[in-house]
Amino acid sequence: MNEVKNIFCIGRNYAKHAVELGNEVPEAPILFTKPTHALTYAKGEDITFPADKGEIHHELEIILHIDKPVKKGDRLEDVVSDISLGIDFTLRDVQSELKKKGQPWDRAKGFPNAAVTTERFPFPGIEACRKETFSLLKNGDVAQEGTINEMMFDFQAIIDECQEVFGLGAGDLIYTGTPEGVGPIKDGDQFEFFWGSERIGSFIVSMK
């Protein structure tokens, strides 16, 4: 297993999510990054979040795991070994203020534990992914659910864009965007990740 080198993220990749936040639907992928210090794993334990930064929103995502250097023209199946599910956490109030000032989102996206991931599992192939739903349960209820068919920019387009803009190599992660249903978290919330009917990770929110 490769050490995580970079965390790249795609913003507003599901049209309904862009609309629910009152944002324009993008014509090209919106790219941003998170520091590796933000990464943590959903293993059933408490994960700590800041209690003094305003609302923190969950954004469920499929994560692509890159296992080799990527060259222009490489196919998805040749460079993605595994996938996982995760959450791109956002300090929503902080992000709103940054957007008003025209400043980067880093403060809202890169705080400790802002990039949660389940354990990785083998990439089943693009056709299998098209047939599967992924979902996030909050306190037993479905909070977010989606399929990759709803993406505006598919996995291949995302890899091509990240390779051209940043370069991609072994150990890089790509958070591929979130379906609608994002919302705030609170102390004690219990979250569970599902790939189809299979539960693949969980955690409990601890606000401090």
Rank of each mutant, 00 (worst) to 15 (best):
K53W: 00
H37I: 13
L39Q: 07
Q95T: 00
I10H: 07
E55L: 01
P35D: 00
L31Q: 09
E119K: 15
K100R: 10
K131I: 04
P122Q: 11
T40R: 11
I83F: 02
T118W: 04
Q103T: 06
K109D: 02
R75K: 15
A114G: 10
L91E: 00
K53V: 08
G73T: 10
G110N: 02
G22S: 13
P35Q: 06
I83K: 03
S81D: 12
P35E: 01
G11V: 13
R120C: 08
I30G: 01
Q95D: 01
K99G: 00
I83Y: 02
Y41P: 03
G44T: 13
G86T: 10
H17W: 10
A42V: 08
K109N: 03
A28K: 15
E27N: 15
V94E: 06
N13A: 13
F32G: 10
C9V: 12
D93Q: 05
F111I: 07
R12P: 05
L31T: 10
H58G: 03
G102I: 07
E119L: 15
Q103C: 03
A42Y: 06
L39I: 10
L21M: 15
D52N: 15
I62Y: 00
L98V: 04
E132K: 14
V79Y: 04
P69A: 14
K71N: 15
P29A: 08
P104Y: 09
E27T: 14
P50N: 06
E24V: 14
G110Y: 05
A114H: 04
E119R: 14
F123G: 02
V70L: 13
V94G: 00
D106C: 07
D88P: 07
K71T: 14
I47P: 06
Y41N: 10
E119N: 15
E127K: 11
V79Q: 04
A108V: 01
I7H: 02
D52Q: 10
A18R: 04
D106Y: 09
P104Q: 11
L98H: 02
T118R: 01
K72A: 13
V19Y: 09
N113C: 12
G44S: 14
S96H: 09
F32H: 07
D88V: 00
I63F: 02
P50K: 02
K43C: 11
P122D: 07
K99A: 05
R120H: 13
Q103D: 08
D78P: 07
K53H: 05
A18K: 04
K68Q: 15
L98G: 00
K68V: 13
H17C: 13
F123S: 02
D74Y: 11
I7S: 04
P29L: 05
I62A: 02
S84C: 10
